[in-house]
């Protein structure tokens, strides 16, 4: 039996979790204020994931780059690979919140969507 101390990143409260792990399985979580803490503890001890937020270039737009996010959390180990893939993309203004940048980033099955509005500007 193994004890692991984690800090939940599910929201800004930052609950301090005590996780009990047995045979690579999470058997108990204490210290959480809500069910997000349970989900986070299980994922963090078995398959840690994060939501990726970054930017993609936009032609003739302001902001000059569009902020984007993965619609769901993706494996932590794939973050840098995803950023690299997004570096190759160039959008054209105008772009809007919710526009789809990629249907499936780095074979995760997760969509990447725009999170800001970039207006078309004359340069």
């Amino acid at each position: 039996m193994e004890q692991r101390a984690l800090i939940c990143i599910g929201c800004p409260m930052g609950c301090r979790l005590e996780v009990t792990i047995e045979n690579s399985q999470v058997v108990d979580v204490t210290g959480q204020s809500c069910k997000i803490g349970n989900t986070y503890a299980v994922k963090e001890c078995t398959n840690p994931t994060r939501i990726l937020t970054t930017t993609v270039e936009v032609e003739n737009g302001y902001p000059e780059v569009a902020s984007v996010k993965t619609e769901r959390d993706i494996p932590k180990g794939k973050l840098l690979e995803c950023v690299k893939e997004l570096k190759k993309i160039k959008l054209t203004a105008p772009v809007h919140i919710g526009d789809i940048v990629l249907e499936d980033i780095a074979n995760t099955g997760v969509r990447v969507v725009v999170t800001t509005n970039c207006d078309l500007v004359d340069k």
Partner: peptide, 17 residues
């Protein structure tokens, strides 16, 4: 542009923009 906004007000996780 990072996420973590809105959990209290909108009960969902949003980015700043």
């Amino acid at each position: 542009i990072h996420n973590g906004f809105g959990l209290q007000v909108f009960k969902e996780e949003l980015t700043g923009p």
